[in-house]
Simulated scan of single mutants.
Amino acid sequence: MMLWELFFTFLKVGSVSFGGGYAVIPMIQYEIESHGWMTSSELQEMISLAGMTPGPIATNSATLVGYKTAGLAGALVTTLGMILPSLIAVILLASMFFRFNNSKWFRSVFYGFRPIITGLIIYAALNFGFLSGDETGFTWMTFVTLLICFGCLYAMFKYKLYPIVVLLAAGAAGIILY
C-alpha cells in the first residue's frame, strides 16, 4: 500500500513539474509534509543532497524520499512516478514541436510559462534559504547566506566563472563561515 501511495504521489508531482526541479520543490515539500514522511529539517538536508548529486534535483529528491520511506523499492517507485509523466510529455511534445514549431501561438504558450516558473524558483529559494521555520528573524546565518549568495552571483556575472568553481567556492565559504 505504501509503495502505491509513493508512486501516485510522485506521479502527481511529476505530472505538474514545469520549469525543472527547483520549480517543483514547493510541491514536493507540500506532499512530503502532508504525508508526514519527513520533518522540515530532513527535507532541507534531502534537497541539499539532491542538488549536489548528478542528475535532476526533482528526480533525485523523489528517489531519496522513496529510499528513506520504503527502502530500495520505495526509491524505485518514486523515481518511476517522477519520470514517467516527463517521458510521455517529451515524446508527445517532440512530435508536436516538429509539426507546430513555426506557430506563434505555440511559442507564446511556452513564453507564458516563464513568469510562473521564475516565481516558483524564487519561492523555493526563499522558503528553503530563509523561511524554514527553524529560526525567526534576521540572524547572522541569514546574513552569511545572503553574502555567499550575492558573492556567487557577482562572481558568475562579473567574472563569468564556471558554475562548478562557484559551487565549490560557496561550499568552502559555508564550511569556513558556519
Rank of each mutant, 00 (worst) to 15 (best):
G129E: 03
G21F: 07
N60K: 09
S40E: 15
I176S: 00
I47W: 00
S108W: 13
T9P: 11
A155P: 09
Y159I: 04
G20M: 11
E33K: 11
L80W: 07
V165F: 09
L87F: 11
Y67P: 07
A23G: 02
F106M: 06
V144H: 04
Y154S: 14
E45Q: 05
E33C: 00
V109A: 02
I91V: 13
G171L: 11
Y159F: 15
V16S: 12
F150D: 11
T79Y: 05
Y111C: 05
F100C: 09
T59P: 07
F110H: 06
G51R: 05
A73L: 06
Y67M: 05
L92F: 10
V90S: 03
F106D: 04
R114L: 14
F128A: 03
A94C: 05
A89M: 15
N127H: 09
K158F: 12
Y67G: 08
I121A: 10
I25M: 13
T63A: 08
S48L: 13
A155I: 03
P56A: 15
I175V: 15
W140N: 00
A170F: 12
F110L: 13
C149Q: 04
F18C: 11
S132V: 00
F100M: 08
E33W: 01
I32E: 13
Q29R: 04
V77G: 03
L11V: 13
Y123D: 00
Q29V: 02
L72H: 09
G151P: 09
M2V: 14
Q44D: 02
L167R: 10
M27C: 01
G137L: 11
K68Y: 14
G36Y: 09
G51C: 07
I176N: 04
M52A: 13
E5N: 11
W140Y: 13
S40R: 14
T9R: 03
L126E: 03
Y22W: 10
N102H: 14
I116N: 05
F138W: 15
L168M: 15
Y162T: 03
K104G: 01
